[in-house]
Amino acid sequence: MTQSAQSQSQQSPVMDIVRNYGIHLVLAVLIVVTAILSPAFLTANNISNMLLQAAPLGIVVIGQVPVILVRGLDLSVASVMATAAVVATCFSGQDTDALPVFIVAISIGLATGLVNGLLITKRNVSPFLATLATMTLLQGMRFAYTQGAPSGNVPPIYRVLGSQTFFGVPYNLMILVVLAAFFSILLHKTTYGRRVYLTGGNPVMARLVGIHADRITIASYVISGGLAALAGLIYSGFVGIVDNWVGRGFELDSIVAAVMGGVALSGGRGSIVGGLFGAAILVVVFNAVLMIGLPIEFQIIIKGAVIIVAAAFYVRKTI
């Protein structure tokens, strides 16, 4: 028996709690500490702000989770987001074009996911490189199309969805909740979901029971691409100004959120709700350092430290 496996079997009840509720503890500690340091932190308006900002990242995370569950990761999400946002400005900028924008943007997202999935399954390209390549490719195509400077207006309905609230509850948060519920049910209550977990958790077994692992994997990337496009549309409505870098940083943030939330990069373990808790941590950290008034150097350092600490709460068999 290996040393790491031993230590796992010798867990104390305390370790058990840490392992199961680590992310919640980290989040709770963050909230309590910030609330003590800054009275403005736990006000209704600030909470509403944070929720508004959490939704785009949350939607990307929902897509990232099934991808990581099948032992992958998707670095192309930020590029898909930016492309969707550019698409949002490419039509007339009126609500009459909201549907065409939606269809084109989501199709680009789904197609990117399909290419990722095909490269990874049919050509055995590693997910890291496949999605890095589609990221670059999509960026180049976006640049070529806009000649580097996107220009145009976002349809007003996306502005509403991306930046308005309904009695304090942001519209984009409602979308997030609906999506989270839908995909949680998909992962936990359907055959597809069980196959995702088996494909990632035990590929040999999956093959033995006749699961088409390739199809499951491709489907996960397609979901991720589609959701990233949706997040891009919603994010474009957040400020209404689209540049080529909408969503920059979301690729790594979404992976970090998922891993902090207990989704194992080795596949087969974790949930959407966990990933969303991870996303919540990132949003809270972003807001907390502003509320406390930390200088930029410490903001970056704290984010790095929180990532490692939160991820460390999930004790794994092997790295």
């Binding site: 970090v256 080795s266 970056i300 790095g304 990532i307 991820a311 794994r316």
Partner: peptide, 27 residues
């Protein structure tokens, strides 16, 4: 060390240390 003893995937560990190093650089 962090990936061995904390049992965190190196991708996450190095992403975290990368942020910390960047912060120190700016300091």
């Amino acid at each position: 060390g962090a990936s061995i003893y904390l049992r965190v995937h190196p991708l996450i560990v190095t992403l975290g240390t990368g942020a910390i190093l960047q912060g120190i650089t700016l300091l």
